[in-house]
Design a protein around this nucleic acid. Structure first.
Lengths: 121, 121, 121, 121
DNA sequence: GTGGTCTAGACCACC
DNA sequence: GTGGTCTAGACCACG
């Protein structure tokens, strides 16, 4: 379900967090679905339970999942999350475009590039 | 010339590196201009000379500057850099757009956003 | 009669206890009224009977109900409870006001707030 | 500087977090003051460094402090925090008053109590 | 069985 | 020296 990239410089718990965020936002995991238990995911990734716990804590803090002690963790309703994530995404786009302006990259040039790349595929 | 943000989570040397890259790409520092000496910059920023040394090493490695033993460091020709930087920038754009596709953000939506934001100001 | 909130971080038995305390203090359940049996409540809430047992034990310990072996549990006289609960409530108010003093919140400010909020509605 | 209460049911890291929040809000720790290092505080409290780290992570997440890797943690500007904390406090007051209304406790009764208690001393 | 907390140690990057 | 991450264990409360 999840693959770790040990060459990645980012900490493991962050990789796990980000992977699940993608799974939830893309609809693979739906509202109410139960997450794998901390221990089971830890063993299946050959990782310490603490590391998974930390990843789940971050996901809960960001409202992607909610946790019932002794029962497990479950996917939250994502509707409100979606708009928030979009806002965050456009913020990062702004940052990148600002950097791009130093390199004299125009909005039109950007549009041509992304249209041609055809990421919808 | 350069201001450090101690609240920034990135290491100091990385902030210095990035700052100079911006200065060079934006044309404030031109080809052949001499960089401040490691020691003078270190004292003016109240920072360990090792930190500046590391930043300069990174700049040299990325071909932004070249060092002449006993004379100092100088800004490289930016023409070749520019295309390289652009390629890198578009690569990061692709990454971001790929993330955006999960959130169902279309190229047109992106274009509307960046045109309206008017980052040229 | 009772709804559980699984997203609530508090244990189930505590939610049940608190719910019944509210029902008793507010007069919905009156002195001598019989409580639902442990097993029937457990099945209607889809919860382990142990959990309900624990909630009832806490209620009995706090003198909200009394149990007659083989007959069931019944609501106690609330007059004495009332004064005890009030004392406890004012104790918690004192704690909160003490915290508030750190934030420079004055008694007058508090009075204005709660009068305006009109919680009697 | 800080005393732990082992009889307290709350986790240690939470006690530490709360203690520092009070110290910062009450002005004992001022903007820019450096926090004790993770390791030094851990040894002086006879507690594992991880536990302190966790407390500091929470404080940083709540914008009470900011951390510079390799240099230490420092107290943030509290002006914006103050209003946020007040809003949170009044929210908790509302909750308590709502509970109180079940016990037929009126705003006037509350005001008389807190005025008499004279918590400003 | 589940998650929540904690300890005792380790390694790394940064300064 | 500092903080950041991780491991390998342990104990607890809850259901």
């Amino acid at each position: 379900m999840i693959l770790l990239d040990y060459k990645d410089r980012r900490p493991i718990y962050e990789q796990v967090t980000e992977k699940f965020k993608t799974l939830i936002l893309s609809g693979v995991l739906k509202e109410g679905d139960s997450m794998p238990s901390v221990r089971s995911l830890a063993t299946s990734l050959s990782v310490n339970p603490n590391t998974i716990q930390r990843a789940y804590a971050k996901l809960e803090q960001d409202d992607f999942i909610y946790t019932v002690s002794g029962k497990g963790s479950f996917v939250s309703c994502i509707d409100t999350l979606m708009t928030e994530q979009k806002r965050d995404w456009f913020h990062r786009l702004d940052e990148l475009v600002k950097e791009g302006s130093i390199l004299h990259i125009s909005p039109e040039e950007i549009y041509e590039h992304i249209k041609q790349a055809d990421h919808s595929s």
